[in-house]
Write a protein that binds this DNA or RNA. Structure first.
Lengths: 229, 229
DNA sequence: TAACATCGTTTGTAATCACAGATGAATAGT
DNA sequence: ACTATTCATCTGTGATTACAAACGATGTTA
C-alpha cells in the first residue's frame, strides 16, 4: 500500500531534499495529466478513486487536489465533488486576454537569456511539433507546444509570472486537447518560426508580436468551432 | 476539539451549501491574515501550532496551507517547513510588472458595470482610507485600500483574472504591511480620486492610467526604502 | 573559546478510522 | 407508464495514530 513512499534516500546530509513526498508526486502526475489534456473537461475526480490508482491513502490525494483547485485547474462543486475545469465563452475570452498580457511580456524578459543553446533547443522542439502535426498525434503536439512556450518563458527567471501563466495553461489544457482531438492537427498554424527568428535577431517587438499572434492562432480561430454553438 | 465543525444546518435541501467546512474556514482566516499583513514575511507556520490555534486537527490545516502555497502566499522550504513569502528585489519587480499588466485591464472591463451605487461605495471607502491615514492605522488602511481595489475589480466579472490578481496581492501583503508599519501612513499617496473621477466620466484610458499610477505610488517609492540596502 | 556530536523534542507525512451527507438504483404508489 | 421514496453504497471530511526527519539545547572535544 505504500509503494510510492518507501523510496528512502540513504545520503545522510541531503536526504531531505531528495526525499519522495507522496502528495508532491501525486500533484505532479495530476498536473501533467490535466495540462496535457488527458482528462476531459467536467470529468469527476474522486479522492478514493485516485487513491486507488496511485496506490496511496486518500490523504496525499486531498492535498494535491487542493493545490489544483487553488490554481483553477480543478473545480469544487457545491456538493464538494471535484471536477476538471469546464470551458465557457466568457472564461475563454478571459484566458485569451490574460495570456496576451502576460506571455509576450515574459517572453520579452527572457530574450536576453535565450542563448544559442536554447535557440537550438527551440528549433529541435519546433521540428518535433511539425512531426506531431504530420503524424496527427494531438497529445504529442500538445506536449511539445507547451515545451516550446515554457522553454522560452522559463528563461526569463520570473517565477511569479511563470506561476500565473502555468495556472492559465492548466485551465485551458483539457479544453484545448478536446478541440485538437476533434479538428485534428492539420488545421494547426503557429508562429514558432517567427518567434525563433525574432529571438535570433534579438528583436523584442517582433518576439512580442509572434507570441501574441501564436496565442490568437492557437486559440481564437479554433475556439469558434466549439463555443459558437 | 471540534468546536468549528459541529454547526450543522438543519435545512434538508441546501444543507450542503451552507455546511461549515473546517479547512475552508481555516483557509479564509489564513488568507485574510496573510493578505492584510498580520504575519511577518518569513514567519514559520507549523501545522500543529495552527491546529492548536484553530482548535482543529492538523488535517484541515494542511489542506488550507497547500492552497496558499499553490498561490505563492506561503513558501515551502526544502525541509518542508512552511513560511510566509519573503520579498526580494527581483520578486518585487515582477509583482509590479504583473500588477500593471493585469489590474488596469480588469478595471477597464469593470468600467461598464460600475454604477452609481458602486461609485458611492468607492467614495465611502476612500473616505475611510483618508481616516485611516490620518489616524495612522496601517492595518485598517491596508484593508480599506484592498477593499477599494477589489470593489472595482470584482465588478468586471472576470473570475480567472481576479484569481491571478488575488494571488499577487497575497504575495506582497505581508511585505507591504511591514513597509507601512515602518514608514507610517503619512507618506501614503494614492490615485483613488483620479480613479473615481475617471469612473464617473466613463473614461477608460484615464481609469487605466489612474490604476497604473496608483500601483506605482503604492509600491515603487516606498520599496526603495527597504530593498535599497 | 569555538566547533562538533548527541539526544530528547518538535514537526511533517501518510495511513486508518468514524461519521455525515450525497448518490443512485430499486421499490412503492399513483 | 411515470413519479416519488427509500435504502444501501459511495464519497468527502476530520480526528487519531505511527513514524521518520528536522530542530535545538546540552555536553564534549580540540
Amino acid at each position: 500500500m505504500r509503494s510510492l513512499v518507501t523510496k528512502i534516500n540513504v545520503n545522510d546530509k541531503k536526504a531531505s531534499v531528495d526525499r519522495v513526498i507522496t502528495h508532491e508526486t501525486v500533484y505532479e502526475s495530476l498536473y501533467e495529466a490535466i495540462i496535457s489534456g488527458r482528462f476531459e473537461p467536467g470529468k469527476i475526480l474522486t479522492i478514493r478513486g485516485l487513491a486507488e490508482q496511485f496506490n496511496v491513502s486518500p490523504m496525499p490525494i486531498r492535498e494535491a487536489i487542493r493545490r489544483l483547485v487553488a490554481l483553477g485547474a480543478l473545480e469544487m462543486q457545491s456538493t464538494r465533488r471535484v471536477a476538471v475545469a469546464q470551458m465557457t465563452d466568457s472564461r475563454y475570452r478571459e484566458i485569451v486576454t490574460a495570456r496576451t498580457l502576460l506571455e509576450p511580456e515574459i517572453a520579452a524578459r527572457a530574450l536576453p537569456n535565450l542563448n544559442k543553446q536554447l535557440i537550438q533547443k527551440l528549433e529541435k522542439i519546433d521540428n518535433e511539433i511539425d512531426d506531431a502535426i504530420n503524424k496527427g498525434e494531438p497529445i504529442l503536439y500538445s506536449q511539445k507546444n507547451r515545451e516550446f512556450h515554457f522553454t522560452i518563458y522559463k528563461a526569463a527567471n520570473c517565477p511569479i509570472m511563470l506561476r500565473l501563466i502555468e495556472s492559465i495553461w492548466l485551465q485551458f489544457g483539457p479544453f484545448m486537447r478536446i478541440v485538437i482531438g476533434r479538428l485534428g492537427t492539420s488545421y494547426i498554424v503557429d508562429q514558432h518560426i517567427s518567434a525563433i527568428t525574432a529571438i535570433k535577431n534579438k528583436d523584442e517587438l517582433a518576439l512580442r508580436e509572434a507570441i501574441k499572434n501564436d496565442i490568437y492562432d492557437g486559440m481564437d480561430r479554433i475556439s469558434k468551432e466549439l463555443l459558437g454553438h
